[in-house]
């Protein structure tokens, strides 16, 4: 783990209310899919807390996908190329990549939860594994990175209003995929209700499912104990240090 001052090298607006920030460290930016970084600008005492973002890309540059939802993300979205960025990471436990992928791999994304799955898709493609990518959103305007995903793997889009792709929820194409690939590995990130549905569908089919969770947090490194979530056994787990990636059965249990 390292904490460094870096600069924004480029920015892109991939969809409304979203921005991708690329930054460069003094050293190559490392990390695994599902790991995250704590990020803030050099903006003084307020907002006092850094914000947690999944890594979208690593290498000579790192990248995060910011959805502009509040004060901190607003400040990040309004930064400019060359501005100073403070980055702590990589943090947490990412997805555990299966050694055996013969049963197929499905990546199931909802909204801004697409970020770690784009990184995972790239990592899998680099290893010669071709995942199917199922990407759901409320409407067609909320699908950042869809063109990039389309270039590297087989993409199916669902929207609730039917404006792009299939009308409905992302669990519909997942169920179809699992009918022909019941031993697949499923990786998912998105709103909690979606994750729970993805986990239920996957476990019912007999597939192994991992989910990446989100929680408000202060430190990002297991110190403040602020990012507690209740797991399936009724124990508190910490998103930053026990996760963000968990086996779905740990969080949602095995019950259909």
């Amino acid at each position: 783990m390292d904490y460094f001052k870096t600069r924004i090298t480029r920015m892109e607006i991939p969809a409304r209310d979203h921005v991708i920030l690329w930054f460069r460290g003094d050293c190559p930016v490392e990390g695994d899919p599902g790991q995250f970084v704590m990020v803030r600008g050099n903006w003084g005492a307020h907002p006092i807390l850094p914000r947690a973002f999944s890594l979208v890309e690593v290498g000579k540059e790192g990248a995060i996908l910011v959805r502009n939802v509040g004060e901190g993300t607003n400040l990040l979205a309004s930064m400019k190329q060359g501005d100073e960025l403070l980055v702590l990471g990589p943090l947490g436990r990412g997805f555990s990549l299966p050694s055996e992928t013969g049963g197929g791999v499905a990546l199931v994304a909802g909204g801004v939860g697409v970020a770690p799955l784009v990184f995972l898709a790239q990592r899998l493609v680099d290893k010669g594994v071709k995942p199917v990518f199922l990407y759901g959103a409320r409407t067609g305007a909320d699908l950042p990175l869809r063109d990039h995903i389309d270039e590297i793997c087989d993409l199916t889009i669902t929207t609730e209003d039917g404006s792009v792709g299939e009308k409905g929820l992302v669990t519909a194409p997942l169920e179809r995929f699992l009918q022909t690939n019941p031993t697949a590995s499923v990786f998912s990130c998105g709103p909690e209700a979606m994750l729970e549905a993805v986990a239920r569908v996957s476990v019912a089919a007999g597939a192994r499912c991992q989910v990446a969770l989100e929680s408000p947090m202060a430190c990002g490194m297991g110190v403040c104990k602020g990012c507690a979530i209740l797991d399936a056994a009724g124990e508190y787990r910490y998103v930053c240090s026990d996760g963000p990636a968990f086996e779905s059965v740990e969080i949602f249990g095995r019950e259909p």
């Binding site: 005492a45 307020h46 907002p47 006092i48 807390l49 004060e71 901190g72 929680s215 408000p216 947090m217 202060a218 403040c224 104990k225 602020g226 990012c227 507690a228 979530i229 209740l230 508190y236």
Partner: peptide, 14 residues
């Protein structure tokens, strides 16, 4: 510990 959420940011603090 207590039920989540356990932290939230406030003006100049948390």
């Amino acid at each position: 510990g207590n039920p989540p959420p356990r932290v939230c940011e406030t003006p100049g603090g948390m």
